[in-house]
């Protein structure tokens, strides 16, 4: 029986700077067999250990189609992430997982997908977008609404450019600068720029709770059914396996029942999710 609390060792094989405080880490398990058996779904998360500093949950940002490595995209905000940012390529960290339910991609087939991301919330959506793009024929029209604080804070800049071939991309920033010619304002301002048919579209979002709150309101106004709005929620999952209690929202544990819930499901939590 494998001890679920003991991480497997991974090597940081590449570090890419996305923004001044966000980096993408490409990770490969030291044990080749562990790497081979590491299967995950878009929207699932891992627990990352920086030994001596602790453990924290991160969404996987790469697509499961990548077999030889996986990636996480991390914002420097806490103890573990600050320690992680000091590490170099070649260094070892620990990984447990994958955990959580992930996005129910089979339910998205034959439908249009509206991806809505805020800040670092684009990380799990990147996994989903790349997964969808590699099975492009199974899905309808794809639209992305993404908001960042400033133009400097936009993650996956180059990749977003490549998505534009298949995805109708709309970006906004809270505060522009001299280089920014695009939209300024919170994510919801982008609703003016897009046209979606709520009858055959699923909305999939990840971002700060306040963003998800207002985006959900707009979606409901547009006529999206409550069970076609998918939210990826953030809580501090410490164990990842439904025991430590930290990620519980009312009746549900984000780590094992989520992190992806429909808006309809969150209404039954009793506690407010977003």
């Amino acid at each position: 029986m494998k001890n679920v609390y003991i991480p497997d060792i991974v090597t940081i094989s590449e570090i890419r700077e996305e923004t001044p405080d966000i980096k993408t880490f490409k990770l490969i398990f030291k044990d080749k067999e562990v790497q081979r058996n590491f299967n995950y779904k878009p929207g699932q998360f891992i627990e990352l250990s920086v030994f001596g500093y602790g453990e924290a949950p991160f969404s996987i940002s790469s697509s499961p189609n990548q077999q030889n490595f996986f990636e996480i995209t991390v914002k420097r905000v806490g103890d573990v992430t600050n320690a992680l940012f000091k590490l170099n390529e070649g260094n070892a960290v620990g990984v447990r997982g994958p955990f959580g339910n992930g996005f129910p991609t089979h339910k998205f087939e034959d439908k249009n997908i509206l991806f809505i991301g805020g800040g670092i919330g684009l990380a799990p959506l990147r996994s989903l977008i790349n997964f969808v793009l590699s099975n492009r024929e199974k899905y309808g029209e794809l639209t992305l609404m993404y908001g960042a604080r400033t133009p400097k804070d936009i993650v996956f800049k180059k990749e977003i450019e490549t998505w534009k071939k298949h995805v109708d991309v709309h970006l906004t920033v809270d505060v522009g600068d001299e280089t920014w010619k695009g939209t300024v304002g919170v994510v919801t301002v982008l609703f003016k720029e897009i046209e979606v048919d709520p009858k055959n579209t699923v909305a999939v979002m990840c971002g700060p709770p306040i963003m998800m709150h207002f985006v959900t309101k707009e979606l409901l106004k547009l006529g999206f059914p409550e069970d076609q709005i998918f939210l990826s929620l953030e809580r501090l999952m410490k164990c990842g396996i439904g025991i430590c209690g930290h990620c519980n929202i009312g009746r549900k544990y984000v780590c094992k029942h989520g992190p992806v819930f429909t808006y309809k499901e969150t209404k039954d939590f009793l506690e407010t999710a977003i």
């Binding site: 991480p7 060792i9 030994f51 070649g90 260094n91």
Partner: peptide, 14 residues
Amino acid sequence: LFTFKIRNNNDVEI
């Protein structure tokens, strides 16, 4: 939950 030894930055023993 476990102990660890950091051999060097590139290797950890649990």
